[in-house]
């Protein structure tokens, strides 16, 4: 009996030591947590999470100050990924998920005030004082930050249309239930 216990104990010690050694020896050098979190955030830079950009939000999450479900552009998928990364429970999104969109300037109404340029966090608007402004569609993240500053309200949000190039094959429908 004693011998058995001793053997088990010895085994536990040996295995524990081996595991400990392995964890030190094969330690995965990864990005710091903030970078990993930031990689998941959509970089829309819209501030809807209550932080001035994705990075501050990532920092807040890493510090444990912010919840993981505050980023509407990231959607439920983003929350899920954050939950996976941080080993937390996924939560419903705090906010409404919108389909991807881009801003569009009505070029006839634009008075060239440059206010939207200053508001755009990702430099997606080109124009100069008293010149018509326009939005570079491929750069726009759809954050809506340019809407409020516009004095003539000429900016609208348009959902992004699917094209032949961005179209995706659908997940095959599993039809098991229908047969029963």
């Amino acid at each position: 009996m004693l011998i058995a216990i001793a053997i088990m104990a010895l085994g536990a010690v040996v295995l524990g030591a081996a595991l400990g050694f392995a964890s030190v020896k094969f330690k995965v050098e990864g990005d710091p947590l903030v970078d990993k979190i930031e990689a998941i955030l959509p970089q829309t830079q819209c501030g809807q999470c209550g932080y001035p950009g994705c990075k501050p939000y990532a920092e807040a999450i890493a510090k444990g100050e912010a919840d993981i479900n505050l980023c509407p552009p990231g959607g439920a998928e983003g929350v899920g990924k954050l939950a996976d990364l941080l080993g937390r429970e996924a939560k419903p999104l705090d906010g409404v998920e919108k389909p991807p969109q881009v801003a569009l300037i009505d070029e006839n109404t634009c008075i060239g005030c440059t206010l939207c340029i200053q508001a755009c966090p990702v430099d997606a608007i080109v124009g100069a004082a008293k010149q018509m402004h326009t939005i570079v569609e491929s750069l726009c993240t759809g954050c809506e930050l340019c809407l409020p500053p516009c004095p003539v309200e000429c900016i609208t949000m348009e959902p992004i249309q699917e094209t032949v190039d961005t179209w995706k094959w659908k997940y095959p429908v599993v039809e098991l239930k229908r047969v029963a």
Binding site: T44, Q45, C54, T166, Y171, P172
Partner: peptide
């Protein structure tokens, strides 16, 4: 169909990732 689905998802993700990276650099630059 599963493979086509997976491939187009991977492409879409790569596109999104590229766009996000671009947005991030431009944001930081700004």
């Amino acid at each position: 169909q599963y493979f086509r689905f997976a491939k187009s998802e991977i492409w879409a993700r790569e596109r999104d990732k590229k766009a996000a990276d671009g947005a991030k650099t431009r944001f930081e630059f700004k």
